[in-house]
Design a protein around this nucleic acid. Structure first.
Lengths: 132, 132
DNA sequence: ACACGAAGGTATCTATTGGATACTGATAGC
DNA sequence: GCTATCAGTATCCAATAGATACCTTCGTGT
């Protein structure tokens, strides 16, 4: 009997919502989506904008996002090749929650950096203080 | 509201906001914070609620969140020991954007699963194409 | 006296992932 | 021919996540 007949329970590892939640939180995926918020961008531009990501990892990220229907990949038959990545409407719908999160992060930078300093100093004191 | 001139630019790898943004998106951190949204929880309870996380990784996650001032760690001097983890007010302020993201994920589960099926079938067709 | 169990972790080892770097293939321009 | 461009692969190595075993402290049961 699973306690999660609900469609979404991020705490249940068997629930797809957890996988999806973690895909959104992916190191690069969320950045890519935010970059694409201003319109289609080609591969090499993405690499420059979301620096410093290696081509392998960027490709993996883009494929995963494409597979999940968040972006589209359009190959223009020309040489040198041109490939545009663009948000789908579902991808666009993710923009707002992601932006809120980014704004939270940006507005709390000073507080967090301060907390880190305090924490690190306390750790130093522990190590040096008792000489155990 | 100008989001580009802010001191934080998640696209800049040298900017702390990117590090913080990615800490929020961490696989376990975001789940832990949501669990703590209902009040303090002890270590062993966290392990059960956020399954399946190993103690090592949970400890790493909790330490990182504590260092960033998002949670507090309270040791009760008793045997067996009791350690409670609790959101700080900053941690609580993260709850809402995180909840929005979770709700987005949960509400888009069916669409995404469908997109995956479609994508995977297309890939299969490509691979088998020569023999079709 | 002895062992056991609970809670909150560490220690250690291996599997998976991420990252750096080099390379490919098609073609247009020199 | 030689080179440059673009969108990736291929390969190898380092960093991270995960599985498992173990530690400590003390109250309780036998």
């Amino acid at each position: 009997m699973d306690t999660n007949a609900l469609p979404g329970n991020v705490l249940d590892p068997n629930c797809p919502s957890r996988v999806i939640f973690q895909r959104i939180g992916d190191k690069w995926a969320s950045l890519v989506i935010q970059v694409l918020g201003d319109g289609p961008v080609r591969f090499s531009e993405l690499r420059k904008m979301v620096h410093v990501v290696t081509p392998k990892v960027l490709t993996q990220t883009l494929r995963a996002l494409e597979r999940d229907g968040l972006i589209t990949r359009t190959v223009h038959a020309q040489v040198p090749p041109r490939v545009d990545y663009e948000l789908t409407s579902m991808g666009e719908s993710l923009l707002q929650p992601l932006t809120l999160l980014r704004q939270w992060a940006e507005s709390h930078v000073p507080t967090i950096l301060e907390a880190r300093d305090t924490y690190d100093e306390a750790q130093d004191d522990l190590l040096l203080g008792s000489s155990n």
